[in-house]
Amino acid sequence: MPDKSSDVVQGTLDMLVLKTLALEPMHGYGISVRIEQMSKGVFRLNAGSLFLAIQRLQRDGLIDGEWKATENNRRARYYVLTKKGRQRLNSEAREWGRQAAAIARILEAS
């Protein structure tokens, strides 16, 4: 684990959660672990921000939640991407890609 972790870039948490869930249905802890792993420890999620994002996405109809048993036989709430959530993820990812490329070009220009 790198000794420096940072907050998720403003406004991108929702997209990251959607991306995580696009791979497979997941519970809250799973989502945060997955994001940490995939970012190689750069992003560490605070429980407050994570569950707030989950509540928001759920209310927007982008994800659905369901109580299930984990592999360790513990009850946890699993979240799945809805059709609308998948569409949103696609459009946001595309937009992000465009912007990131643009920013990179500006920074590389000398």
């Binding site: 519970h27 360790n72 946890a76």
Partner: peptide
């Protein structure tokens, strides 16, 4: 109650780790 249960599960999973 649901929120509580969900968060507790989250905490316990993290602690298990």
């Amino acid at each position: 109650r649901e929120l509580d249960e969900e968060l507790r599960a989250y905490q316990e999973m993290a602690a298990e780790e």
